[in-house]
Amino acid sequence: MHDLKPMTPLGQHEPVIETHGPVTLTEVTDTALASVAARLGREADTAAILASVLGSETPAPARHGGKTLTAFWMGPDQWMVEAPLETHEDLAAQLAATSEGAMSVTEQTDAWCRFDLSGERLADVFERLCSANTRAFTGGEAVRTAIEHLGCFLLCRTPAHISVLGPRSAANSLHHALLTAMRSAH
């Protein structure tokens, strides 16, 4: 086992947690990500493999979900799979091993930073950040949109718990934007 010490997207060795009013902002670093895209003509196979990985149906456009693992829709015939990093450090390789040539798998774990907002009245915060109609979120939504010039995913786990995935290199900018919106809203 290597002894290299990982750094969080915000440049720390421990995730950053901040609370303002009813909302808590948590940097999340314990999730592995891998994208899965169906090969041409293998769309059904890919959906089936993914369904078995997730233990549930493959998420429809703009949705996320899953039981054993979770995934969200990224684009036509393309999904991002989420898994606990501790057990799935090399998620992409694990998925590729099951792909039977039906799908292209790409490691995405460190392509993204992730901030979870939890608490009450999250829509008051998100309406200051992006055009997604977060007030209508009920859980299971996955929307890719722009936040302060950054392309981000919004994953609504429950209306009181929404994850934001943004480009890792801009984690500080995204974090600043989220905090500013929290202070403005509450």
Partner: peptide, 11 residues
């Protein structure tokens, strides 16, 4: 064409 693309710049 059977080809899939994704950016991995940040990964």
């Amino acid at each position: 064409m059977d080809v899939q693309l994704i950016s991995t710049t940040e990964a």
